[in-house]
Design a protein around this nucleic acid. Structure first.
Length: 530
RNA sequence: UGCGGGGUAGCUCAAUAAGGUCGAGCGCCUGCCUGUUACGCAGGAGGAUGUGGGUUCGAGUCCCACCCCCGUAGCCA
């Protein structure tokens, strides 16, 4: 068979409906078979459209691992009369060259995914060379600059697919439970919460700000529709460069009329469980490949733990926190010892005579990775006394710090709601606890294993006078909030809601070390390319 | 912003506690290889060591300043 050309003069694909024994019976948009459906085509000749993920040519036989967006497939190309026309051109293609291959599908345990394509026809769409991301280790700075290419790599590919599922699970849950989608503005006239962390934009000569929450607007909408949510990007100009921060991130914010704090917490609990369940159901294999301990996610079931802020403070002051950190200190020290030994072993292999060069390199690379892990642990060990200090001297009235949250979440095997924070550290719109006016009726949800806060929510202050007082206490310009106060003037009801950070949730579900991998094009302090 | 680590080939890293013409693998180019899967073998091209100044006969290595990156703390989803 000759190389197939299905492209017109202008590079537009010509229709070739029904040519390859396709199983679709609806209108055929793509003539090619997706790799993830090859199992339905064993023994048939099919066409694959994709990119060279890896290729191992050897004289008259070439193995090309093709990537098509749905999966990977090893394509075997033998040099024989019918492949002679394109063998050389295809066998020598560089990584990420785009090409269309036709061939017989066969089961093959030695191949990735269990199937392979015995190639009989090929068309090179674009021969690429010098693709920057090779199947070798790369540094994070380099990869972030290549972000537009990086997410063709397996790990990134898995994460972004899981992200898509998380987003879908969020929408499904809310849509199926009677929530109405309300899109809130990105340009906001003033602060939603803290004023220090807003991006200012010149709006026809007037300053406006990129929204850091849709919450106030969604409160208005919930008085119209009962149960609503907004879902979109939000912006925080915090000057923080940590593995938990983005300047642009996605947040979903449900808001419910006629709801108490407990009602809202119940929803947050069901919501979180639904997302976890869906991801486990759809992506178990990917999670495992990402190195996630799936059993930990399977344990995420109702009921979550519910602690008040005051109880959390007691835990920090108590023996359990101290024991946890002391145990940590011992375990990490032991691990550091073990790593030191492993590093020596790797270095010995790297210097050994008669060992294959690539094995030496691998040993050297392992040694580097282990050194990094050791340095990381050493830093953590160094910080433990400080964290113990912080926990032991935690002062009622201040906000929980990152290390405090980690201690609380690690002392529990399921997510933990921390409720009823002191009013002073929380936003003006949160409802005052009628039993103890020092407290607000709010909650944070801490993900397990120290992955941090993924949800923040509250009952909203429905009482006009109390709300006005809070606005005054915070020195906010009341005129800007008149529309918001109207919601308390005309048929105010108890209501509440919460916001869930998509990227933080994804970090937790996938076990990501850094939030930058949880979003296609991360925006961080000082970073906006590509 | 504070503290810690780092910037050497397109990429990942070497260059020995004690200054002396910067080296390897991958990638790229040439040739060989029919069951590879980090394929293998032989050969080749490819470097103002982040920037500026200083010490020295001589600096990737020592000193000073600046820039950038990574980690960590605060704030937060």
């Amino acid at each position: 068979m000759q190389a197939i050309s299905r492209f017109g003069k202008a590079g537009v694909r010509l229709p070739v409906a029904g040519r390859w024994g396709l199983s679709y019976n609806s209108r055929i948009m793509k003539a090619a078979t997706p790799i993830d459906r090859l199992k339905e085509h064993v023994g048939q000749t099919v066409t694959l459209e994709g990119w060279v993920y890896n290729s191992r040519p050897s004289g008259k036989l070439a193995f090309i691992t093709l990537r098509d967006g749905t999966g990977l497939c090893q394509c075997v190309l033998e040099k024989k009369p019918e492949t002679d026309g394109f063998f050389d051109a295809v066998a020598r293609l560089g990584q990420e060259s785009s090409l269309i291959l036709t061939g017989l599908v066969a089961e093959e345990p030695r191949s990735v995914g269990g199937y392979e394509l015995r190639v009989s026809g090929a068309e090179v769409v674009h021969p690429a060379s010098d693709y920057p991301i090779t199947p070798k280790p790369h540094g994070i700075e380099f990869l972030m600059k290549q972000r537009h290419l990086w997410f063709r790599s397996k790990r990134q590919w898995h994460v972004l697919r899981i992200r898509a599922t998380v987003v879908d699970a969020i929408r499904r849950f809310l849509n199926d439970n009677g929530y109405v989608l309300i899109d809130t503005p990105i340009f906001a006239p003033a602060a939603g919460e803290g004023a220090q962390t807003l991006f200012e934009v010149d709006y026809f000569g007037e300053p406006v700000y990129l929204a850091q929450t849709g919450q106030l607007y969604v409160e208005a909408a919930c008085m119209a529709h009962g149960k609503v949510y907004c879902f979109g990007p939000t912006f925080r100009a915090e000057k923080s460069k940590t593995r938990r921060h983005l300047t642009e991130f996605w947040m979903v914010e449900p808001e419910i009329a006629y709801a108490s704090l407990d009602d809202v917490i119940d929803v947050a609990e069901d919501f979180t469980c639904a997302i976890v369940e869906r991801v486990l159901n759809d992506h178990r294999d990917e999670l495992i490949e990402l190195g996630r301990d799936v059993a930990e996610l399977e344990a995420i079931k109702k009921p979550f733990y519910r602690l008040t802020y005051t109880e959390a403070a007691d835990i920090l002051h108590g023996p359990r926190a101290k024991e946890l950190l002391e145990k940590d200190l011992v375990e990490k020290s032991v691990r550091i010892e073990a790593l030191s030994k492993e590093i020596e072993e790797c270095e010995a292999v790297a210097k050994q005579e008669g060992v294959k060069q690539w094995k030496k390199d691998k040993a050297a690379a392992d040694a580097i990775a282990k050194r990094e892990e050791r340095a990381d642990l050493e830093e953590q060990v160094k910080n433990i006394p400080h964290h113990m200090e912080l926990a032991a001297h935690f002062k009622w009235g201040s906000d929980l710090g990152g290390s405090d949250e980690t201690i609380i979440s690690r002392l529990h095997d399921r997510p933990v709601f921390v409720t009823h924070y002191p009013r002073g550290v929380k936003a003006f719109y949160m409802r005052e606890d009628r039993k103890d006016p020092r407290l607000s009726e709010n909650f944070d949800l801490l993900a397990p294993q120290g992955f941090g806060e993924i949800i923040g929510g509250s009952a909203r202050e429905e009482d006009y006078d109390r709300l006005v007082n809070r606005i005054k206490e915070e020195n906010l310009p009341q005129a800007d909030y008149e529309w918001y106060l109207d919601l308390r003037r005309y048929g105010t009801v108890p209501h509440g809601g919460f916001g869930l950070g998509v990227e933080r949730t994804l970090c937790w579900l996938c076990g990501l070390k850094h939030i930058r991998e949880a979003i296609p094009f991360p925006r961080m302090m000082g970073k906006f390319y590509p």
